[in-house]
Design a protein around this nucleic acid. Sequence first.
RNA 1: GGGCCGGUAGUUCAAUCUGGUAGAAUGCCUCCCUCGCACGGAGGAGGUCGGGGGUUCAAAUCCCCCCCGGUCCA
Length: 888
Amino acid sequence: MDLFNREGFVRKKCESCGKHFWTLNQERTRCDDQPCSPYTFIGDPPTSKRLSYVETWNAVERFFKKNGHTIVKRYPVVSRWRPDLYFTVASIIDFQRVEGGKVVFALPANPLVVPQMCVRFNDVPTVGVNGKHGTSFCMIGQTALANREGYWKDRTIDLDFELLTKVFGIPKEEVSFDEDVWMGYGAFGYSLQYNVRGLETGNAVFTAFEGSPEKYVPLKERVVDMGAGLERLTWLSQGTPTAYDSYLAPVLRRMKKENAVEYDEALFRKYAALAGEINLDEYRNLDDARLKIAKSLGRDASDLAKQFGALEALYAIADHTRTLLFAIADGMLPSNSGGGYNLRMVYRRARNFINYYKFKLTVPDLIDWHIDQLRGMYPELAGHDSDVKDVLGVEESRFLSSAERVAKIVSSISSEGKELSTDDLVRLYDSDGVTPEQLAEAGARASPPEGFYEKVQARHLSREIEQPKLQFDTSRISATRLWYYEEGAPLDFTARVVKVFQGNHVVLDRTVFYPRGGGQEPDRGTLGGAEVVDIEKYGDVVIHKVKGKAPRAGTRVECHVDQRRRRRVTQIHSATHVLNGASREVLGPWVWQHSAFKEEDYGRIDITHFSHLTGVEVQKIEDLANDVVRRDLPVTNTFMPRQEAEKKYGFRLYQGGVVPGKLVRVVDIGGWDIEACGGTHVSSTGEVGLIKVTKVERVQDGVERLEFVAGEAAIEYMHRMDSELSELSAVLNTQRENLPKVARGILRDLEESRAREKSLGETIVEMSSTGVAAEAKDVGAARLYVSKNPPMGEEQIIGQGQKSVSSEPSLIYVAIFSTGKSARIVCFVGQEAMKAGFSAVEIVRQLAPTLGGSGGGSPSFAQGGGPLAGKVDEAASIAQGLLPNSTS
RNA sequence: GGGCCGGUAGUUCAAUCUGGUAGAAUGCCUCCCUCGCACGGAGGAGGUCGGGGGUUCAAAUCCCCCCCGGUCCA
């Protein structure tokens, strides 16, 4: 490294961790990173100036601009262009695209610097506590390709050293560099980490290889990926006890205005210097880490938690609301699965802190304060102000109802006073969201949650899902010419058969058959006389599955695409785009297409939205969509380089997920909806004819499904509905307009007659049970009544039996009857009869075998039966012969 | 994406483990008490036990599939 020679840096090995590092300070024996060295900048910042968050960025921006860098606007924190990630976790993610299963770098400028807000949820419990972790942070991404416009190692280090020493005025000997190798996201390289007074301020990765250290190839183009934490630089320049006190200062000031937190500031500075060591990788849990800090301060751990808990809660609230602001402004919704779960989790964590410490704070205020603070750096946030508050308003009501639910569970458990095992606690937390802390506070008897979170974790160990293997080896076959994408491609065409797999999977040299893709179902038709039943794309080879005799390889075949099907699927596909645009317009900017499906007869689009669609909303969407259809807007398909498309249209392009490849096909529905899409489309919206939403349902939290018909399928749907209505009015013998009235009348009549039937049944029971005792015959001290197939329903029989024995306690009531496919026995034994030695359950057990079954119940009432319906008579005559001693 | 918990009267829930007449509280209706209200008293209405299939003489209960809600984790 040029700089090291020029300035006289020496390479040393840290006596604590063993890493190599470069420094100007001859005395240094340990690397200047945690935990080898403590923070020494707190209360004593090494920089020449005290800078705010935005001022720090402005200084960085000015410096790199002056040195020939393009300053790029931040990318969304929701990484739509990366199917393998929910959030932008590092600045380099902005410039990575997946093409053909490989990560490629695509820079909009070279060299460049981006103030990339990043979101990470992997150490939420330490946020607010360890002084530096946040769920969001701004990574200053200095990115360059190692070519003529850009640069490689020396220039990177020169620039960053100059930034630290000249711009921020840090003495040269205070800056040291740790050597390492950095890996991640499919590429790796040598790295240098910049440390100042115990704080890591940046990390430059010189990405030179693709793959992993075990198996790698040199990258075609090497990339400099330097990331510096803006929060860290701000902190360093202010020397505040925690990073939060620096980069969140304006927000914290407003938070504290009505929420004075009192604590020993001198003690807190000492505590904060040590709190930086809290890192869940090294400590089993927060309590252990706190215990260690408490010990070295000579304090009690619970005392420290009590003393600083409220302050730490304020930090966490500030952090969490800032993350929510960015994530929701960039289109993510809180939910119970996927990346949305992280948002729900931090929202609830923040809200619980507000409740617990009874802070006078509202989330919408906090959102405003963050927007205010960041205005000079991220002015776009202000434009999302009301959307973010709308979404959080919904989330708030969910939080409240969930809190209510938890409170109910907690109070019912604590009132039971039962001792809870760890398993109980784990189950309660996992399935109901009730934490052990909440239970303990309510006075429930809970055993200490030793290894609690490990137990929860253990319940979620999931097995790896195996990737389905490619069925065919297409590596030796050249790409199929995708004729269907070409203007004026004929639906009847000839092509040469290149290869036939497994006797019925045909590869052609060119094809107009549209394969399954982007949620659109494949074409049908004939290929050399054989019926085409399925079409899939494997890489860039299209494989047609045929039924019947497949043509031989090398022959020329005539192909005919099913025109009717193609036309109908096309209409539905374009309708999907129109509906997507209409939904976003009607509902809000958080609406994205989650997934979609287009068949010949109907289509389906899943959109992200936070609540159930109302009838009015659906109607608005439908009306707007049909308005777009009537305006007959032109639809264009254009292939363009990915970068150009992203630049021109933004990430809204990626509605159905990312499209792989260097070129993307941009489908523009008259400027109304623009998406990257590989499907077939109409040439103007008028061809869609009509769009009708047929069904709305919720797929999962935050995702609503619209089922619809369009074009010819919509007309057919109308016909079908119409004839069903006709049929219905014929059945009910009325005119259509009277149908609702007539149906309501029928329903009312039905209810009335049910009520009549019920009271009639009761009358029958009432009248008939008086005659039972008279017909009974003496059996010892008891009286026996056996009825065979009484003319009543089962319910009435039970009613009659019950009534009879209660008015005549010496009575034994036995009813044996057939239900058609089987025989049943119902038996009641009155109080006196029981004393005389009779038992209902014994009687049933004695009779049931005759019917080929069994029975059960109590001595006073039992039921039974069997499948032999024809043996009712036989069973009845056995019942007639019952004797007292035979059943006891 | 995966795991777990739940769905019974308008509402909150019991009965499910261990199959045998679906229950309580509350709200609602009627009546009594009262100048009236509240309280109190008497009576009454209110249920496809989320849906479907299976096992069984018999399923709210056991088994399978699906739907819906909640929750945790990646």
